[in-house]
Design a protein around this nucleic acid. Structure first.
Length: 775
DNA sequence: CAGTGAGCGAGCTTCCGCTTGACTT
């Protein structure tokens, strides 16, 4: 048994550190938090200074038992959790549950995982900072109070199983409000004039493209301008060149990495985080959940060496960036390769690509500025006071651009290249001038990565929760991520060529969206509901404001339960008020009368989601109901579309003596035949589906079913080897089992199947192990 | 997996932040 026990948060870190410390030290990890508020009810004694009721998390019980054994037999216990609020709290909870004594307990922190940093930390231990721990308790208690008092209001007043919280509700609000802005957006237009001119001088022949800074509001004005140009001469009025520089972006954090991985690699936020985790565990990159852009001295040194070696001294420039985001805690470094001389790693394609991105970004951040030369050429029009301007950009020294350039979300980036050589006063030949009707763009919808960016800006959520929060608001069906078809519109293009102005009407596509976040009916309804009664919690600055209070607790200027008391009083009154006074929110909307019956047609939110209704709920005669289909919403559905929903179920013919009926169910449109259900394909339309198409569906499914069974056993009809979505598996009754690698599924005997089932680990679906956010 | 929606009432749901696996049909 070694003399010293060191406890860190992550097992990967523990492994590395153990190597640095030698055999006098055993290094273990806590796997994050070990104790939390009990899961049942509030678990906060509101009457007695908000005393929290803590409980060891069920999946940590065994680990704590093992740690306790080790701690009891060690001379000194070193608590080396992260140096931030949550890390301090983990150390405190550990010392409580392990029964550590101050005499032989040391709290240490280090900022980078190197032998020097760790030995240095061991030389300068301190004790647990109770103020910082209290700031964390305040954070934890506040989140529980908000979440567990708001959610039940939604269950009663909107729909069961909904949730609300300090972070998720504000994230949903961002998406709802962006959608409202887009709906309210009035697309104005203006005519943009561009000229193409011919150049012919001692440097050769070329063309030059130049824009008119002035835009014209109407087609008539644009046309008048082109006509003025038709017999004008064009001369170079002025040539302006000025040097410019461009600097590299800071190294990655948990917010910027998914943004770039989304833009450059089309990764979702969760995929980026999963792959980054794999790289971290393989020792390839530093920790991936960080809000810091700081690089260690070791990293700076490695970067310099690599850059000088590969590109030369003049490409290197040492930079240290400072973190600007609200509420950053900086317990870690920026995300960077562990070894900067490795520009590539082994692994699957995702790992290699993400690593390359991280490597380039880190290296570029330590490289020299790019030197540019910007050129503006102004072109006079003999018949007008307006001027055309051509803009060009030439790279004089690549600097960091040799390695990496950050992308932007704005796709309409200007390409500014090299301009032909010209002289002041030179005459240009007019090739053509166009005036194109350009529509203004509405605000852009969020995608996952840009939502993370916005949340970081507002200080909402933490690096470890960005990805889970995004999946929570989708699982609760407040938000959907999807593609939407755009629409087409006409625009006018006027062209001046050979002295004549011609007008053409063209068609452009616009509004196409891919993988964007849209609010659902329920998301909009819940946001509206919470905004009415809990505007302060929905405020974009709520988190930033409470963070200031937590900081005061951390500095010892305030008692944590006083802060909570001041918050809880008014908050709880509003909760009671909302429960007593507010009506059930249904988001009901009247679409108009049903032409057949004359009764009103409504859309509203019911227990199972959005639905349409014909007739009144209060009337003697029961109303008819029909669920809205996927992609339809209360906000956008028309009366005609709503009425179509009542055409189901619809008989469409017979097959093998049984009637076929098309219907729309919870899982989308289907055909019912002989008590069996057949889902329609995405391309099939339930309104127009014919009997022949339905028969195709039935036959097709039968083929799949026939291929599903690999083997059956006469002795045990409940045991089967089947083909599933994830490959072959064994099904016994209602349980399914994985087939171990190396055994051929088709040749498994009944005994072998039963053996596999027996030795299989127990199902993880037991209570208490269901992951957050999953249903 | 499969067609609900009124109202009654049982018993359930829910937060954020720190960490990894286990395992899906």
């Amino acid at each position: 048994m070694s003399k010293n026990l060191v406890i860190v948060e992550s097992p990967a870190k523990a492994k590395t550190i153990e190597g640095y410390l030698g055999k006098e030290y055993t290094v273990k990890s806590s796997f994050g938090h070990v104790r939390d508020l009990a899961t049942k009810d509030l678990s906060i004694d509101v009457e007695h200074d908000f005393k929290p009721l803590y409980e060891i998390m069920p999946d940590k019980l065994k680990m704590i038992k093992d740690l306790k054994k080790l701690a009891d037999s060690s001379e000194i216990i070193w608590l080396a959790t992260d140096e931030d609020r949550e890390g301090e709290a983990i150390s405190w909870h550990l010392s409580e549950v392990l029964g550590l004594k101050p005499a032989n307990t040391r709290r240490i922190v280090f900022h980078e995982i190197t032998k020097t940093a760790i030995t240095e930390a061991i030389l300068h231990p301190r004790s647990i900072d109770q103020n910082l721990v209290d700031a964390q308790q305040a954070r934890r208690v506040l989140d529980r109070l908000v979440g567990f008092e708001l959610s039940p209001i939604l269950w009663k007043k909107v729909k069961p199983s909904l949730s609300a919280g300090r972070v998720q509700s504000v994230a949903v609000r961002l998406i709802v409000e962006r959608e409202e802005d887009i709906r309210a957006f009035n697309s104005t237009f203006a005519f943009k004039v561009t000229g193409i001119f011919d150049v012919e001088n001692e440097f050769g022949k070329a063309t030059i493209k130049a824009d008119l800074p002035k835009r014209y509001a109407t087609s008539a004005e644009a046309k008048a301008f082109l006509e003025i140009c038709s017999n004008a001469t064009f001369t170079v009025a002025d040539i302006e060149t000025k040097p410019a520089k461009r600097s590299p972006a800071p190294p990655f954090t948990t917010s910027t990495l998914p943004q770039e991985a989304s833009r450059k690699l089309s990764f979702s936020v969760s995929r980026t985080m999963t792959v980054a985790q794999q790289l971290y565990e393989a020792g390839k990159i530093t920790y991936m959940r960080t809000d810091s852009v700081h690089l260690s001295l070791t990293a700076l040194g490695m970067a310099k060496e690599e850059i000088v070696r590969s590109y030369g001294q003049e490409y290197h420039k040492s930079r240290q960036f400072t973190t600007k985001s609200k509420g950053a805690q900086e317990a870690h470094e920026a995300i960077r390769p562990t070894y900067l001389n490795q520009s590539a790693v082994d692994g699957d394609a995702s790992q290699r690509r993400l690593y390359e991105l991280i490597w380039k970004r880190t290296i570029a951040s330590q490289m020299a500025d790019a030197a540019l030369e910007k050129t503006n050429i102004y072109i006079n029009i003999s018949t007008s006071k307006e001027q055309f301007v051509a803009m060009g950009e030439v790279i004089k020294f690549e600097g960091f651009l040799k390695v990496y350039l950050e992308s932007t979300d704005d796709e309409s980036e200007k390409e500014e290249g090299l301009l032909p050589q010209l002289k002041k006063g030179e005459l240009l030949g007019m090739n053509e001038i166009t005036a194109v009707q350009k529509f203004a763009q509405p605000p852009a919808r969020y995608n996952e990565a840009s939502l993370v960016k916005k949340m970081e800006e507002l200080g909402i959520g933490r690096p470890s929760t960005y990805a889970p929060t995004i999946s929570t608001i989708q699982k609760r069906e407040y938000v959907v991520k999807e593609d939407r078809e755009g629409a087409s519109r006409e625009f006018e293009q006027l062209t001046l060529r050979a002295g004549k102005v011609k007008s053409a009407i063209r068609i452009e596509k616009f509004g196409f969206e891919k993988n964007k976040l849209f609010p659902t009916d329920i998301g909009e309804l819940v946001t509206r509901f919470l905004m009415q009664s809990f505007i302060d919690i929905m405020d974009y600055n709520f988190t930033a404001n409470v963070e200031k209070e937590f900081d005061e607790i951390a500095e010892g200027l305030q008692e944590w339960n006083h802060i909570i008391r001041d918050f809880y009083g008014p908050f709880h009154r509003k909760v009671t008020e909302a429960l007593e006074s507010k009506e059930r929110a249904k988001g009901e909307k009247l679409l108009g009368p049903d032409p057949k019956s004359g009764k009103n047609v409504y859309v509203k939110i019911g227990r199972y989601g959005s639905m349409a209704q014909i007739g009144e709920t209060e009337s003697e005669e029961k109303p008819r109901f029909a669920g809205l289909r996927k992609g339809q919403s209360i906000e956008s559905i028309s009366l005609e579309e709503a009425l179509k929903l009542f055409d189901f179920p619809r008989p469409i013919g017979e097959f093998e003596g049984g009637e076929m009926i098309v219907g729309i169910g919870r899982f989308g449109p289907y055909v019912l035949h002989n008590k069996k259900f057949y889902s329609l394909k995405k391309t099939d339309d339930p309104v127009t589906l014919t009997a022949d198409e339905a028969i195709d569906l039935i036959v097709e499914k039968r083929v799949v079913e026939a291929n599903r069974t690999i083997s059956e056993f006469v002795e045990r009809p409940d045991v089967k080897v089947l083909n599933g979505r994830f490959g072959p598996y064994i099904s016994i009754g209602k349980e399914n089992y994985k087939i171990p690698k190396g055994s051929a599924p088709a040749s498994l005997s009944l005994n072998e199947c039963l053996e596999i089932a027996k030795s299989a680990p127990p199902s993880a679906k037991k209570k208490g192990f269901v992951k957050r956010g999953k249903k």
